[in-house]
Amino acid sequence: AQCLKDDKMAESIAAFADAHQNMQILHINGCFHSDAHLGTAQKLEALRPELKIAVITPLERKQKGEKPAGDFVVWFDRK
């Protein structure tokens, strides 16, 4: 079921990218769908290899030392 959801999200992003070629796209999803460029990111890379895709991983500051599963990290403090 998760793979079908990843596939559909990637197909929707690809269709939007085709219709809006000069726009940057920000897609927000749970980390399960894109960590390590798997899931939605992997499917989108297969559909549109010419796109530049970056994965942003949010991590709590107390998780310092964990290896991020994305290209960029946004550190946060949980309140």
Rank of each mutant, 00 (worst) to 15 (best):
G39L: 08
M23K: 13
F32I: 13
D71F: 01
K5H: 05
L26S: 08
V55H: 06
Q21M: 06
D7A: 12
A15L: 11
G65L: 04
E45H: 05
R48F: 00
L59H: 01
L59C: 06
G65F: 05
I13M: 01
L51Q: 02
A19E: 09
T57W: 10
G39I: 06
H33V: 05
N22V: 05
V55D: 11
L44K: 00
I53P: 08
V55E: 14
H20D: 12
P58R: 03
V73D: 04
K62G: 05
L26V: 15
N29P: 11
A1K: 04
N22Q: 13
L59K: 00
R48G: 05
L38C: 12
D18K: 00
A36R: 15
E11K: 02
A17Y: 01
K62P: 09
L4N: 06
H20R: 02
D6P: 09
A15T: 10
K62V: 07
E45I: 13
Q42S: 15
K52G: 14
R48H: 00
I53S: 02
V73Q: 03
V55R: 00
I13P: 01
A36E: 14
A19C: 07
Q63M: 08
K79A: 12
E11H: 01
W75N: 09
A1M: 15
A15H: 03
T57K: 02
C31D: 15
K67S: 12
V73F: 00
A15F: 03
G39C: 08
C31M: 08
Q42N: 09
F76H: 05
D71C: 10
A41Q: 05
H27Q: 09
H20P: 14
R78V: 15
D35N: 14
P58D: 08
I56E: 15
F76T: 03
F32Q: 14
S34A: 13
G65P: 13
L4F: 05
P49D: 02
L38E: 13
P49E: 05
W75K: 02
E60K: 07
D77N: 09
C3D: 12
V73K: 00
A41S: 14
